[in-house]
Amino acid sequence: MVTEQTTLSNLAVEVENLERIYKIRGSKKEKNVRKELVALKDVSLQIKRGELFGLLGPNGAGKTTLIKILTTLLAPTSGWARVAGYDVVKEPGKVRTQINMVSGGESSGYGLLTVRENLWMFSQFYGLPSKEANQRIEALLKIVGLEDRIHTKSSDLSTGLRQKMNIVRGFLTDPQVLFLDEPTLGLDVGASRDVRHLIRNWLDQDRSRTLLLTTHYMVEADELCDRVAIINQGRVLACDTPSALKQQLQRDALFEISVGALNGLAVPTLERVPGVRKVASEESEEMTVLKFILDEDAALGGVINKLTESNVKIVRLDKHEPTLEDVFVSLVGRSMAEVEKEGSNGDGK
């Protein structure tokens, strides 16, 4: 069936100058101090029907906030968004007939119902014929390897298996636009692969289906998504196909140098070495990994000199092809792990 909307627009999601501000109440002492937190700032995006679109960003970037707005759970502070041709603020009821959503990393569901009952109930809320629903439930459970648990009470499932059940719930109602918020968060390698497999299959079966997922796994975004938006502190910094994003760094020289201790050598000092564009550092217990974006290979000599001058012991040196991680570093100036570490320190969590 061709709906009015499919003929009007081939855009599944349209976002224009979207902004979301959270008002945060201070602690008990400063009750009247009202802080504002800008979770999304001037976000504009267009996602075509048939696309697998990824939102990539560190903790607190605003990914979930954007999904909540697009799924009608949260009102934007300003700007507008349309999903499947309908305005999320003015026509939430129509948007809801076209979408479904699953968030990973939480175990929702009615624990007293079995896996089948949970899924069947949701299919009924979406008006699916019962028989068709049961067939689909079985088929989908098989894909994620949960078919032998169909009669298990969902409270008896492990967190990961419950998440699989919830992912099946998302696909079950066959939405026009499906939102998956960190679908593979907390899943083991095999389960993540099952889920990615399900995602690709579902999209390949019908090219009018659209899927938006968020992740902070670079590799997942790279391998899976048709297009990726890199988002940090509520802003979209870049939006393109993974290969086009990496292409921009193709001319640069990317090196990863593992060193013992930095001996007080500061990262900005390294950035002042001629030919060095960006340096990001990731510290682990024994080692520090320095990621360099250089204008050209020849600049490496200066870097090595600087390190040896400061008595920094080089453990390992790699040159590599650009990854989305490097794209993030080149846009933000720090690696995603660093940003997340700062964020959690700043919040005092």
């Binding site: 009608t72 809801r96 959503m101 929702s108 624990g111 809320f125």
Partner: peptide
Amino acid sequence: HYKTLKYMYIAPI
């Protein structure tokens, strides 16, 4: 408890 309110909310009900 069930953490399903948002899923009920976005369903066409």
